[in-house]
Every structure is written in C-alpha cells, then in structure tokens.
C-alpha cells in the first residue's frame, strides 16, 4: 500500500470510529421507516429464526443500554467490514490468477 492509500484507510477508519462513538448518543431507538410502516399497516412480526451475537448493535453481557457496548459493537463491525472489503477486493481485482 502506498503512503497515500495508508492515509486514506486511516482517515476513513477515523471517520467511522467517530460515527461509532457518536452513534449511541445520536442514534434514535425509534422504529425505522420500514418497521414503522409494518407497525402501522401490517400484523407481520420479525421472525426469530436467527439470533445474532450482537443484536441491534449491542453487546449482550454489557447490557442493552450501555453506550460503551454500542460503541464497541459498532467498532467491531467497522473493523470486520474493513477487513472483508479488503480481502474481497484483493480476491476480485484485476490480474488475479485464481479464477472462481
């Protein structure tokens, strides 16, 4: 990675971390547009066929309303997507010998 690209990754990461830190304080627990519409015009409920380890961006053992749990969950998510994006792009990019 060139120094310019390193800067890009660090700057992007910094912005994501800022969002993650602010999120528990700014973010709304109101239902989103889709959930609200579902509440108002439908009887369908979300099915519980799958339990995510960090449901709704909380860390269960830290408690649902713990803002530090929320920040940690988001930071974990940012790092996972950053890593996955990097790996996927390496695999998919031009002049790659491994064809799927």
């Amino acid at each position: 990675m060139s120094p310019k690209d390193k800067k890009l990754v660090l700057a992007g990461l910094a912005i994501c971390i800022i969002i993650a830190v602010l999120a528990p304080f700014i973010a709304s627990s109101n239902p989103d547009g889709l959930e609200k519409t579902a509440e108002d015009v439908s009887t369908t409920e979300e099915s519980g066929i799958y339990e995510a380890p960090m449901p709704d961006y909380t860390i269960p053992f830290l408690g649902e309303d713990n803002p530090y749990g929320g920040i940690m969950a988001l930071v974990v998510g940012v790092l996972i997507t950053l890593g996955l994006g990097y790996i996927a792009a390496i695999f998919l990019k031009r002049r790659n010998a491994s064809q799927q």
């Binding site: 890009l8 992007g12 994501c16 709304s28 959930e35 996927a88 990019k93």
Partner: peptide
C-alpha cells in the same frame, strides 16, 4: 481500488448502522 473498496465498505457499514431520528416518530 483495494484500500478504497475496504474503506467504503467500512463507511457504508457505519452510516447504515446509525439510525438518525426523523419526523413522525421514526428513524
């Protein structure tokens, strides 16, 4: 494009994870 793709994935995750309050009791 590799670092750009990675940064965008992380950024999209961050903005899609944060529900901002909007009108009518929704976010």
């Amino acid at each position: 494009s590799v670092p750009l793709m990675a940064v965008l994935a992380a950024g999209i995750f961050a903005i899609m994870s944060m529900n901002i309050p909007i009108a009518f009791g929704t976010s």
